[in-house]
Write a protein that binds this DNA or RNA. Structure first.
Lengths: 252, 252
DNA sequence: AAGAGTTTGCTCAACTCTGCTCGACTTTGG
DNA sequence: CCAAAGTCGAGCAGAGTTGAGCAAACTCTT
């Protein structure tokens, strides 16, 4: 068995069975606990899982299939930097709409302490903010998608037609060279479009590793974006394409 | 069990079941009280819960549903019996709509293992069922009311107009002598009415202590009910009034 | 076929977690 | 107001976990 395969198997096991101990993983995969520890250490550094005393837990089932996984180590910090910068834009009294995905969860983490209204169908955001009494929290209806920690479906779209937010923070699987925002999860595309319609200002939060990036479906073009928050590693050409389309590109 | 998993389980337990004692948590999780104390200490330091003498509670004040809250504690067995009987009516494949309130949370607890679709705006029900992969869970949108563990507002009503369920399980603060269903929380009344419209069959679940009972607002009359699940202590006169209105009164 | 570089399993000291005990403190019920 | 019961936090020892170092096995290149 290849080390890389073993690591993917570890991630799959975590996603299927939840938190696992070092011992059980070692037994299951037929290697020593020392090897598992090294695997977990690396996967944690890559931001693929959360290392805890005695084992590991899943983080999210977000970008596991990400072809840019090699640079993910730097990108964990990158992602958080982008999320923090985006969160800093939010002023007390605002109403913000938060997309699905781990980036938005990190962003929500940096919203603590603000007196704002947050609208979302992201269950990770909901869990993060549900006990923060300073934040008015509005959850969009929908079918619970456990793997993606989100609510989706026509109920969500329906709710989105009834709400309005000053600012939308949008996530993505990648931004194409021409500035188009892409996504890999088809069911989310109509939701993202509905969110764009429901907000005055659209802020795309995407660490540099997503420039240029791919995805199955096109969510929107650069014309629909007002601001893009990214990091230093973003591809200059894509960046230029966005700026030429009139998008304000902010570097975290 | 990983220490970290245990801590998350503690938080989830608190959200689902309300304030817990150190002893009951220790029993439930199979560890010593000393360990629970250390967990609570850490979670309190992290701002995840509020430590109180003898146990812990969620950050927000406890769910004081109605003036009957104290009585509810004493009537726990009664309430649970009614909830269990009501849950037993549900067959695999059904779609059920669950009202707000602690009774519905107990009912949800007895739904584990069934392959059904549950629609609700009750966050305690959501917490109870969110990890049960056999259950398709649909959450109605709305504003998070932390004190009541629920989602309310026009988004909820809007979603309710779009969904349909075979059966609605309805809670109440009390049933009047003439069979009218009452409620103390005004904001929930339009929701309950919308739920009644969205379901083929309306099942009121109310332990005997709510017969006869009061409330500020009238939710619906006995004509809107199909079945009432209650317990032995229910007032016979109110019971008769219901039966005369054609309601099937089931005793748990 | 040999060498460089990586991966793996083992050992060991440091650390963390857990359950226990004990004295101090808080709550409860007279 | 007092005493009994329960709860708390500190300290301790044992069990388990961790990361570092090291040698053997393996892979890839030359």
């Amino acid at each position: 068995m290849l080390p890389q395969s073993r690591r993917e198997l570890i991630l799959r096991t975590l996603r299927a069975d939840g938190p696992s101990e070092v011992r059980s993983l070692a037994d299951k995969l037929g290697v020593s606990q020392a090897t598992i520890r090294r695997d977990l250490e690396q996967l944690d550094a890559d931001g693929k899982l959360t290392r805890v005393y005695g084992g590991a837990m899943t983080l999210e089932a977000d970008e596991v299939d990400d072809p840019f996984a090699q640079v993910a180590a730097e990108r964990a910090d990158d992602k958080d930097a982008a999320a923090r910068t985006a969160a800093a834009m939010v002023q007390d009294g605002e109403t913000v709409l938060l997309d699905i995905g781990t980036t938005m969860h990190r962003l929500a983490h940096h919203l603590h302490g603000k007196r704002i209204t947050v609208v979302t169908s992201n269950l990770a955001v909901f869990d993060e903010l549900r006990d923060d009494v300073d934040i008015e929290l509005v959850l969009l209806g929908g079918v619970v998608r456990r793997r993606y920690h989100s609510l989706v479906g026509f109920l969500t779209e329906d709710n989105l037609r009834q709400v309005h937010a000053g600012r939308l923070f949008l996530g993505t699987s990648g931004v194409r060279g021409d500035g188009a925002v892409m996504d890999t999860t088809l069911v989310e595309v109509p939701l993202k479009r509905a969110m764009i319609k429901a907000a005055d200002q659209v802020v795309l939060v995407a660490d540099g590793g997503k420039f240029p990036g791919v995805g199955v479906a096109r969510v929107c073009g650069p014309d629909d974006l007002d601001v893009v928050v990214t990091t230093a590693s973003a591809d200059p050409a894509t960046r230029l394409a966005l700026q030429e389309a009139g998008v304000d590109v902010v570097q975290a």
